[in-house]
Design a protein around this nucleic acid. Structure first.
Length: 271
DNA sequence: TCCCAGGCTCTCT
DNA sequence: AGAGAGCATGGG
């Protein structure tokens, strides 16, 4: 990773990054494609990032915000070439890495990730994005370029009826239970971010509507616990088809990132 | 019309 | 502990 400052923009040189593969692959739900890039919220920070072929342009981003937020958000201090080389000891993963070499794991806000993946259950990505968009419009703080993701304390004051405009269906009560437990401090996300994977997961599982899969997503995308390996219907197919005897050792310690490659590959790359 | 979607809860064995 | 129905909503 290398960067330069160009007036109000940051110019980013990073070969292991593809915007569509990273921002529009079902790990984050608040980005939308525009002319030659993506626009959307990374946590509370609105971002317009363009792919200029040889570099990326982060529009209207200060060096301070880049170094203190976006470097972490895009996981730019991790060497994905090295990871892909490791993964390529396994044939299926090798294909997945070749198919979508520009995937990166986004280090998202823990509350947003938890809430988003509660909404994701038994749902499709298009509708998930719609529900989250309405959630932000209805209850998020108004920003210059849109609405931030609503805080847990705000949602904790609401009822299922209040959430009806979201058309989230049976997930509305789950959103509220998570909001109440987080807002009250019964579940302390900041503390869990520093805790180990096993303990953090056991805490998240106390939320009604959070099971193995949603917990693992919150841990992976919201707390960067990369040993988390969320198994959804797609990854279930990968496991059944390619790994009936278990996952390869070359992903040890990086299971969640490998999962991200496999997820994209099975959904888009296998005929 | 039926089936499915980045699942979970509840109930019945 | 393991299997199966039901759950809201919308797209194919």
């Amino acid at each position: 990773m290398r960067y330069e400052i160009d007036k109000n923009d940051i110019i980013l040189y990073e070969k292991d990054l593809d915007l569509a593969q990273t921002l529009d692959c079902g790990q984050a739900f608040r980005f939308y494609k525009c002319e030659n890039g993506f626009k959307g919220f990374a946590g509370d920070n609105f971002l317009h990032i363009n792919d200029e072929k040889n570099y990326f342009r982060l529009k209207n981003v200060s060096e301070y915000d880049f170094l203190h937020f976006f470097v972490n958000y895009f996981d730019l201090n991790t060497d994905y070439s090295l990871l892909k080389a490791r993964f390529s000891n396994d044939l299926t993963l090798k294909k997945a890495c070749e198919f979508a070499g520009g995937i990166r794991l986004l280090r998202q806000n823990s509350w947003e990730a938890l809430c988003s993946f509660i909404i994701s259950q038994n749902n499709n990505i298009k509708r998930i994005k719609g529900i989250i968009e309405r959630l932000c419009e209805c209850f998020g703080e108004k920003k210059e370029y849109g609405f931030a993701f609503p805080k847990a304390d705000k949602l904790a004051t609401l009822t299922v009826e209040d959430l009806s405009p979201l058309r989230a269906g049976f997930r509305a009560k789950y959103i509220l239970d998570a909001s109440k437990k987080v807002a009250s401090g019964e579940i302390d996300l900041e503390m869990l971010e520093k805790s180990d994977y096993i303990y953090a997961k056991s805490e998240l599982l106390k939320i009604v509507g959070v099971g193995e899969k949603v917990a693992n997503c919150a841990l992976l995308y919201g707390m960067y616990k990369i040993e988390a390996f969320p198994v959804d219907v797609w990854i279930r197919r990968v496991l059944d088809e390619y790994y009936p005897d278990g996952l390869p050792r070359c992903i040890d310690g990086f299971e969640g990132i490998a999962q991200q490659f496999l997820f994209h590959y099975i959904r888009n790359g296998v005929s």
